[in-house]
Write a protein that binds this DNA or RNA. Structure first.
Lengths: 210, 210
DNA sequence: ATAATCACTGTTAATATGTTCAGTGTCAAG
DNA sequence: CTTGACACTGAACATATTAACAGTGATTAT
């Protein structure tokens, strides 16, 4: 199969996207307008090229009657990065993540361990962020944070259990002083542990749906 | 939803079958011929009825531009989390994503389509963000953005090709004016397309490693 | 230097296609 | 019996759409 020029690739891509988006094929004028051409003939030339090279089929003279011959293919099977499945919790009522029942999950997420930034075999989980306390760290309400149970170091963002609810805060461990939690939002005070600081895990990555 | 008469069901069925079979919609005359009518107006009446009852949508005056609103068929089998594999590009040197060589990918990412916010079977890809131009939208340098090729709407964050490099910007389409790109950072100016605006896709989600 | 390819502009022609207007016949409900 | 919904015929019209012809520049290969 002949290679396509840049422009031809763009036209083909537009055909595919438009068709998937709208459910029907674009007219030549619509293609022209999308690319900002002044002449329909610019489009005609490209369509003819695509047809000659075997990427599309058309019915001569008829409107919006395309068929894409060469789907630029499914992706190669890929060397499966290791994908793991984690539950997503809205809020962890109490206790250590170990004690959570599966039923408490509000969703599930599957990512490869590389992009999630976690190791396998460490019961990681995801947490749906509530509130704005980490807004200055770029973590917003509704974001999903992937948490790996681990011992925190100074500066890590952690999921911590405070008053029976889980929140996300930055873990600060000054030398020779007890650690405390810091919200990344000027309006929120630091949290010095009154009794006990239960860290459920370290935030390794965040996922936000736009 | 109003019930359909027998004839209307037949017409609707033919629309679906024809479209599935051929990949495009039939013209009114083709529908007429299939049912053996002698007048195109017989078809027009039924189409109007189908539209009034909310089963289809059409674009007035335009050829073969249907959309079936109410699928009287079966739903897609339910959402078993489907994991797909996407390439990650550092920078798309030029051209449409179609034209990118596999080798240009700097990494791969695997997520389920639900958390990625994309549909399957649409050559989606991920882009490593460079620069601070979207910082006010909570997208930072080094973040990974999952892009789905699609036609942008006003306000979408898009991957756009500018001067041979891909950047992330917000797509603004004022009514009756040409669209432009807006950076979400007070220090960056709006980008009004000098010549041509190539949108490579819409940002559906972001992934950040902490 | 010449030719060939690519990406277009601008105009015009031909026809594919949707739409409207004015009717006919059937059937069931009030 | 009249009314209205339904399913159509037949003809005419407007325009959406494809397609052809004649060029212009820029770039690249020969």
């Amino acid at each position: 199969m002949d290679d396509l020029t840049l422009r031809q690739q763009e036209i083909l891509g537009f055909l595919q996207i438009f068709s998937q988006e709208k459910g029907f094929w674009p007219s030549i004028r619509e293609i022209r307008d999308h690319f900002g051409f002044n002449s329909t003939n610019a489009v005609v030339g490209h369509l003819r090229a695509l047809e000659n090279k075997g990427y599309i089929t058309r019915i001569a003279g008829q409107a919006r009657t395309y068929r894409i011959t060469y789907e630029n293919s499914e992706e190669p099977p890929a060397e499966s990065l290791e994908v793991i499945d984690m539950p997503v919790y809205g809020n962890i009522a109490a206790g250590y993540p170990d004690g959570i029942e599966q039923g408490d999950a509000i969703d599930r997420i599957q990512v490869d361990i590389n992009t999630a930034g976690i190791r396998r075999s460490r019961r990681s989980f995801a947490l749906k962020v509530r509130g704005e306390s980490m807004i200055d760290a770029g973590i917003f309400d509704g974001d999903m944070v992937i948490i790996e149970p681990a011992l925190p170091n100074d500066g890590d963002i952690v999921a911590a259990l405070i008053d029976g609810a889980t929140t996300l805060k930055r873990f600060i461990k000054p030398s020779n002083q007890p650690p405390y939690l810091k919200a990344e939002n000027a309006n929120y005070p630091d949290l010095h542990p009154v009794s006990e600081l239960v860290i459920q895990g370290i935030a390794r990555s965040i996922v936000r749906k736009l």
